[in-house]
Write a protein that binds this DNA or RNA. Structure first.
Lengths: 236, 236
DNA sequence: TGACCACCTAGCCAAATGGCTAGGTGCAGG
DNA sequence: CCTGCACCTAGCCATTTGGCTAGGTGGTCA
């Protein structure tokens, strides 16, 4: 049943979901992506026992998520965007999934709330955003159902974050370049501009240049604030 | 041997564990403390299904942990020290449990690794420290068993952290005062000493004074580093 | 009573930072 | 080919900082 028709490039005809609305007979089919085994087991247990859904695959890497979605064409992808060390890849992944598998809804289950990540995720078609520590057991099932029905589900505190985020950073949150991140990390380690310059084989002027740009992008004015915001955004 | 003799104040007679060494017949009895329901369910599932242990209680607050340990006298307490907003209370809790219930071993299951927390926890009698994201399913059961047998279990990266931590900060990690924390938070927000002084109704000199002290305690030399370390220690 | 601690203040000086203008290169995509 | 972008450099100047010495108060605890 939940196979067939899957062939060619990345063809996707969703087997169970036939007419937009799910049938009361078919179980909601879910792919869980999280690098934490405890979370994966917990999610499976809650969703299958309490909510009567089916977790058809688990993934722990960005690549595995794509494979799983491609293979199973789930109704909902529950994902912690922080799989590898690069959260940006998680965002790209969302874009790719909503683009190539529009029938699969995405519910982000984040460890911590980052305004930038929330805003960027929603911009990329994510329709649900919950925070692991805040979510109650029954909210999970309800959230998945809502997301599956096309509703947008935002957990505690996420909503206001979105309002502020979309308001302040109209356009889009510019993302830091590699060099900028490198410099910020050095700043966080307590190095002076001169030390950073030596370490990176660039001039002190260049260090200041990168920091100025990072300041603008992060809307900070002091290096301590840069470090704080970069941290909050999960960039360090 | 390491049971009985417990009476009065918080009397507790351990039901299953009779003679220090667990019998192969008795299931290991566990209390799980974590504010995240997904993690609690996941832990229960892994420990009960895969490792043949029994989770006799779950707790989500510091007080509830004490109650649960008092009521059930478990073999092992698995806890995420970050229960409320004050991680220090988690450390105090460890001290209290090891003090009042020496037969109950503590296994910390942390979300993120903080050198300060690790060192302080071990100093307070914690015998296991694992990181949620790194732990494999089978390591959990093994870890619990080891801890129960009195062995010290340190997860990936924790060991080296302990070495560095105990080496550098011999004595003990001094903890920040309220004022110092207040100032650091303001620094993280990007305020200058002058602005912080106005906000806190103190002189600029005093702000510098507090920052100097905080620098020493956190072993940092620049405000950006102070913010970073305070953040890493879960103080902000 | 004395010791300790958190807290507060002052002033000095070298060094670091922030904020700015005004340039340069190489590479990728329309 | 032109544009944009990441990256790099220089210099100027006011402000902030780091690091220091040298004091003060009030509360707590032995």
């Amino acid at each position: 049943m939940d196979t067939d028709v899957r062939n060619e490039i990345k063809a996707d005809h969703r087997p169970d979901v036939s007419l937009g609305r799910r049938s009361p007979l078919a179980k909601t089919r879910i792919v869980v992506a999280d690098r934490n085994v405890i979370t994966r087991v917990g999610l499976r247990s809650i969703l299958e026992r309490n909510a009567g859904m089916a977790v058809v695959a688990e993934a722990t890497t960005y690549d595995a998520v794509l494979d799983a979605v491609d293979e199973h064409g789930p109704d909902v992808l529950i994902i912690d965007l922080d799989l590898g060390d690069d959260t940006t890849r998680g965002l790209k992944l969302c874009e790719e999934v909503t683009d190539r598998y529009p029938a699969t809804k995405i519910l982000v289950l984040a460890q911590k709330l980052s305004e930038m990540i929330v805003v960027e995720a929603l911009r990329r078609g994510v329709t649900g955003y919950l925070c692991k520590d805040d979510v109650k057991a029954d909210e999970l099932g309800k959230g998945v159902r809502s997301v599956q029905d096309g509703e947008t589900v935002l957990g505690k505190g996420v909503g206001s974050m979105v309002a502020r985020g979309l308001g302040s950073t109209r356009g889009q949150a510019e993302h830091l370049t590699d060099r900028e991140l490198e410099v910020i990390r050095a700043v966080a380690a307590g190095l002076s501009n001169k030390q950073i310059a030596q370490q990176a084989y660039i001039s002190e002027s260049t260090v200041k240049f990168h920091l100025q740009n990072a300041s603008r992008k992060l809307n900070a004015h002091r290096r301590a604030e840069i470090v704080h915001r970069a941290n909050a955004a999960g960039l360090l």
